[in-house]
Design a protein around this nucleic acid. Structure first.
Lengths: 331, 331
DNA sequence: CTGAAAGCGCTTACAG
DNA sequence: CTGAAAGCGCTTACAG
């Protein structure tokens, strides 16, 4: 038979549908004997409740919407891994919504609301504070719980899970300063991200504390493009150390540096951000800030389940720890 | 007001709900004047149909299930990008299901069926023919359309989208043979994948055709591990060329080769598979087979929409073209 | 071209 | 502890 319904089960067990429903949702309210009988029929028929019907009747879909921009970024994919694992534990399904640059975000959010998800996870490190505010209003207006993952915001009412990027930027810069490096560059992206802004702030603070001039070089995240930017870099600049806001940028820079006869780390120390696979496939292996991307996903999903079930939450702004992985690209 | 319903719209426009529903689903059946009036009220109220209710009533959820194993693999993420873009075009939503090694696949599929998706996309290059058959039976039994993406299967009734991995393996091997390389190794994974089996078959065919002995070296996909395997490689083996079944394996091997004083490509030619970012961040840049991963995702989603809407499909087994990107790691 | 009514497969007070 | 009934917000024949 194709897809038994709750009626089939009720008939088979000689009870009403209400009882079958209770066996599924509030088993403790059903007499043990009855419950066993119903369970047996359920198994025999291979019955699984129609999730859609349940969603309509209960107004709970046990589904969360996950909003992403660019899924091909390694950090996004790994965060999704964490989200997915936790969602599975809590028996939530995941609906994926990707918003592209050219799309009307608020319109998309309206669509998500129409999908009747129980909560929303918003992954995007490129959000401006204003955008965050719009999104927050939209969701609170529809009273649907939400959590921002890997987003930095100063609004104390916005649930976020991330690391302290400012501190990370500070620490990695400090590492190079303490190594007596003088001309320390930060290689950042031309496009401004809230997260990268924090890294830059941390870098700048460390430099100024040390009485050194912050030097931020902006380039593209695309290797083919930044390679060109970097190739002229060495002809007109003094540089003793560089920090890439992404590992891929750091590795690309390191390659060009070596092409220009620089010895890494002797002449030039290089560090990256994110501790991706690149850091192990580069020569020399790259010093990098390990960001617990999987955990950011997992923790934000866990926070969201609490919010969805009106559990007490003592802190809606979670900062996860990061640490520096020292490898051969620095002393 | 929170979430207007179809009743609110009907009342506002002075029509029945049936008419509102028609305006949404079969607008041509409604008199122009009425339609405009309804549309106006819809806009005023910001009405969006409750997707769940619609799903229950129409038995169509306009949602597809996407089954993945490891989302952190770059190819999976990029495929998802292609799927997501096309899904958006056709107004389908995506529900993500990840199956882990230790899970009962068939049980998971039952859950997916209970979710009432209109179709399923199954991404997994590690499926055995037997497994493919089980899955096929499960879905056909529940009469839910499905497409395998990046899966190779010999069953002519199984809709698949992939490239000709055997041919790709053959061609890249041929490239090295034609370059007069003698000891050509294939660096494959210890775990057997259907897709890697095909690459190996192509490699073997090319080698045998040339009267050379196929040499397959199996290692881990994990850089930290394969690095160790490779470090003893050069002490006891003659090697003039190597092909990694993944770019990351090829790059890892290349690094060790250079540590052992080999000049790439002079002493040793190296090629990879997939043309990922690694191929551009390695030194020298890696020759690789470009596999149109995004397109595999996009095309399989498009195929699935046709199957879901009972459109005529002339070919349910689609092979996409691949090509070799020659870079500095080979002559 | 439009409306009244049944029904999709569940959950949830309400009685008992 | 269990059942009858209403209802979730839509779609879809069926009449007219």
């Amino acid at each position: 038979m194709i897809n038994a319904t709750i009626y089939d089960v009720a008939r088979g067990a000689g009870v009403s549908l209400a009882t079958v429903s209770r066996v599924l949702n509030n088993p403790e309210k059903v007499k043990d004997e009855t419950r066993q009988r119903v369970l047996k029929v359920i198994k025999e028929l291979g019955y699984r409740p129609n999730v859609i019907a349940r969603g309509l009747a209960s107004r709970k879909t046990t589904t969360v919407g996950v909003v992403i921009s660019d899924i091909t970024r390694a950090s996004v994919a790994e965060m999704l891994g964490g989200i997915s694992d936790i969602a599975q534990n809590y028996h939530y399904s995941i609906k994926l919504f990707s918003v592209r640059e050219d799309m009307d975000v608020i319109d998309t959010l309206h669509n998500i609301v129409a999908e009747q998800v129980d909560g929303v996870l918003y992954l995007n490190d490129e959000l401006s504070e204003m955008r965050v505010n719009e999104i927050k209003k939209m969701f609170t207006g529809n009273s649907i719980p939400f959590v921002f993952a890997n987003v930095v915001s100063d609004d104390p009412d916005v649930p976020t899970v991330s690391i302290d990027y400012e501190k990370a930027g500070y620490e990695i810069t400090k590492l190079l300063i303490d190594d007596q490096r003088e001309n320390i560059y930060l290689l950042s992206t031309a496009r401004r991200y809230s997260v990268n802004d924090k890294k830059e702030a941390g870098y700048t603070r460390a430099m100024q504390e040390a009485g050194m001039e912050p030097k931020i070089f902006r380039t593209s995240g695309d290797t083919l493009i930044n390679r060109q930017h970097f190739s002229t870099f060495f002809s007109d600049k003094r540089v003793d150390a560089a920090i890439g806001v992404r590992d891929s940028i750091a590795v690309s820079f390191m390659n060009i540096a070596r092409d220009n006869g620089r010895d890494v780390p002797k002449d030039l120390a290089i560090a990256g951000f994110q501790n991706t696979k690149y850091s192990l496939l580069s020569r020399p292996n790259l010093t990098s800030i390990d960001i617990p991307v999987y955990d950011i996903g997992a923790v934000s999903m866990r926070l969201l389940t609490k919010l969805m079930n009106n559990k007490e939450v003592d802190n809606i702004r979670i900062i996860l720890p990061h640490y520096i992985v020292k490898r051969d690209s620095t002393n």
